[in-house]
Design a protein around this nucleic acid. Structure first.
Lengths: 252, 252
DNA sequence: CGGTTGTTTGAGGACGTTCAAGTACTGTGG
DNA sequence: CCACAGTACTTGAACGTCCTCAAACAACCG
């Protein structure tokens, strides 16, 4: 563990809530590894060997089918600890973990982690807190998937990533299109088309750059004010009609 | 808390893992209430007042939209403790809780629960365990939704509810069609049609009674052995072709 | 028996996928 | 600098799955 790693570790919520002494004991002599983008960290069905703490980067949990199709269940970023359920329960992973950006990861051996869980009350409380957050994360995803269309999910995604809560905003997408699509539960083609549709709502994308004219307007998309069935709104609906000025605008 | 409630409580995994003394302290003087089917226990956006322990019955967590549509995120049965994330984090509920069968529920005030969490190590460890299980539950649901068709999800549902792991099985559905449909993320109509399709795979339903000729055969449905794209298999696919003998068989 | 509610069936349509082709962005080596 | 390949992204057409609506049917209860 290099000094720079220690710095990253100390900045995490995990560290802060554990207290220095406990955190130090937990991380002592642990490996820290670098992984390039798109590395499989763990495979479905394996038993947990390490608990992973992301010092830097982003990791996706992916579910795979025997026929080769796969999807992203959720993803975690800097400072998060993940795939702890399998480690805690000593059961095989339900999902695989894959880096979706270059990552630097602290690897805590499961045996040590499980031991610490028993002896350090602070760690148990921390895990209760983290797992509760993770639970809410998945509940949010399930709600999105079951209740919202692809377009609405994209709008929601952009809003949560927007630095501003309303008004204009511009920022960069940190992941490629295919990854975003998998995370939102749609095909890359559908994502592309949804971006096109959002032009009418004041969203401009060019590569990884995103410009939103009015974030508040986007929010309305996935919080329908009109309690009418979706298909009833279509006949005379102008919402997604391309405005004349935007039809032939090409990014550069 | 009546003696019969205490008996139910003592049979739960929660009680067993906490130990008698701690469990007794946690539940002392707590209310136990009966709820008929389809009662809203908590609403979306409220802050948690009680942690609920189901002594008897089944409760669904439902996500709702402003337009009135709603869906079931997951459900819990006897002996389970639920909506703990909101209680732990002192944040408003992301989902509502609704009984989907008559229920008898032990209500633990959040303040007491949170206090106990800090002081009783056993409770913290128990919650880590429960939350890990609940996490895996949702991961499973997300995987099903994103990776499997309605038909496959129903097959999976029936297999998990089947008392036998292979061979013939018969059992009863504990919930009505609409609830099952919501839980599986489909409309009641789609569920009905999926049941029809499963006749070809040796599934007979009549009211709440289910007869499965061969559970192992059902499992094949959602674990496709052939690594071919679904639509390629269609032209000459016999899987869902009704066998001559089954076409006109009616239940009763 | 009619009224209520839950389930099934049929028709049509919306949403999203797949496949295929085209276009734009990489980086590499000449 | 350009040609080139390789990859990522976009666009179009056709199709499949699932949803909605509406109506028929069944079961239950007064």
């Amino acid at each position: 563990m290099r000094p720079s790693d220690l710095q990253l570790f100390q900045k995490t919520e995990i560290f802060a809530r554990l207290g220095e002494a406990t955190a130090e004991r937990l991380a002592r002599n642990c490996q820290v590894k670098d992984y390039p983008k798109n590395t499989m960290l763990t495979e479905q069905g394996e038993t947990a060997e390490y608990v992973h703490l992301i010092l830097n980067g982003r990791v996706a949990l992916t579910a795979e089918c025997l026929d080769g199709s796969s999807t992203i269940v959720t993803s975690f970023g800097d400072g998060e600890i993940f795939v702890t359920a399998a480690a805690i329960l000593q059961q095989p992973y339900l999902v695989a973990a894959k880096t979706i950006s270059p990552c630097r990861i602290l690897l805590i051996p499961v045996t040590r982690f499980r031991q610490a869980l028993q002896t350090e009350a602070a760690l148990a409380l921390l895990m209760v807190d983290r797992l509760a957050h993770h639970w809410r994360l998945l509940v949010g995803h399930l709600r999105e998937l079951k209740l919202h269309t692809a377009l609405e999910r994209l709008a929601s995604y952009l809003v949560t990533r927007s630095p501003a809560a309303r008004g204009a905003a511009h920022f960069r997408l940190t992941e490629d299109r295919r990854t975003i699509a998998a995370e939102l539960g749609m095909s890359a083609e559908c994502l592309s088309r949804s971006f096109q549709q959002l032009r009418a709502c004041g969203v401009r994308v060019s590569g990884s750059r995103v410009h939103i004219l009015d974030v508040a307007q986007l929010k309305k998309l996935y919080r329908p004010v009109v309690p009418a069935p979706r298909h009833m709104a279509n006949p005379a609906d102008e919402t997604f009609e391309r405005s004349p000025e935007s039809v032939h605008q090409q990014t550069h």
